[in-house]
Amino acid sequence: MDRNGTGGPRVPGSQWYDGEAGPLVRPYAMTGGRTRPGPTGVRLDLIAQVALDPGAPRFDNDAGLGPEHWALIELCRAQTQSVAELGAGADLPVGVVRVLLGDLLELGCVTVSRPVPPGQHTDAHILREVIEGLRAL
């Protein structure tokens, strides 16, 4: 194992290189040191569904968005995806994806919706039984 603890050969003059994994970019570099999404008030849990907003303003490469933002936009352009799927598709940690999605939400590029939890689905069979029970009174 070398001095930086990676186990791989160290490239001279580069502290951001792991011999086995290749070049490294620390998550805080992608998010500007932020660990939480902006003040959007939207929960970005793993199953939240993210879609590209069709009415979103068009941005060019000078919009201040990083390559990771653009990667998420391109993934959403193809289809609606969960936060977890976006993390896997962009090969980014979910914490980083949440912060970047917060940026995209504030800019109006994406929309986020949460699927209805199974416990909150209305079962038609139960509703029919309740109606029949009320009629029987």
Rank of each mutant, 00 (worst) to 15 (best):
D2A: 12
D2C: 15
D2P: 10
R3G: 08
R3L: 08
G5M: 05
G5F: 10
G5S: 13
G8H: 01
P9F: 05
R10T: 08
R10D: 11
V11K: 05
P12E: 10
P12D: 09
P12W: 04
G13R: 14
G13T: 03
Q15M: 11
W16C: 12
Y17T: 00
D18S: 00
D18F: 00
G19Y: 02
G19K: 01
G22M: 01
G22Q: 00
P23H: 15
P23N: 09
L24D: 00
V25Y: 03
R26Y: 11
R26Q: 15
P27E: 03
P27I: 09
A29V: 14
G32E: 11
G33Q: 04
G33H: 06
R34L: 07
T35S: 06
P37Q: 06
P39T: 12
T40V: 11
V42E: 08
R43Q: 09
L44K: 01
L46Q: 08
L46D: 10
L46Y: 03
I47Y: 05
A51L: 08
A51E: 06
L52N: 06
L52V: 05
D53T: 05
D53G: 02
G55D: 06
A56H: 01
A56S: 14
P57Y: 02
P57A: 14
R58C: 04
F59K: 03
D62V: 04
D62H: 12
A63C: 07
A63D: 10
L65M: 14
G66V: 10
G66R: 10
G66D: 09
P67I: 09
E68Q: 07
W70N: 02
W70F: 04
L72K: 01
I73R: 13
E74I: 05
C76T: 15
C76N: 01
R77T: 09
Q79A: 14
Q79P: 01
T80R: 13
T80S: 09
T80H: 07
Q81E: 12
Q81N: 04
S82G: 11
E85T: 03
E85L: 12
E85A: 15
E85H: 13
L86W: 06
G87H: 12
G89N: 02
A90Q: 02
D91F: 07
D91I: 08
L92G: 02
G95M: 01
V96E: 01
V97Y: 07
V97W: 08
R98D: 14
R98L: 14
R98I: 06
V99E: 12
V99Q: 13
L100D: 07
L100T: 03
L100K: 01
L101K: 06
D103V: 15
L104M: 13
L105I: 12
L105H: 12
L105P: 00
L107D: 11
G108M: 12
G108W: 12
V112E: 05
V112G: 13
S113N: 13
P115W: 00
V116C: 06
V116Q: 07
P117D: 00
P117A: 09
P118A: 04
G119V: 00
G119I: 00
T122M: 08
D123Q: 11
A124S: 14
H125A: 15
I126K: 10
L127H: 11
L127V: 15
L127K: 08
L127R: 15
E129T: 13
V130Q: 07
V130W: 04
V130L: 11
I131L: 12
E132N: 11
E132V: 05
E132S: 10
L134T: 08
L134E: 07
R135H: 11
R135Q: 13
R135S: 05
R135G: 02
R135F: 04
A136Q: 14
L137K: 13
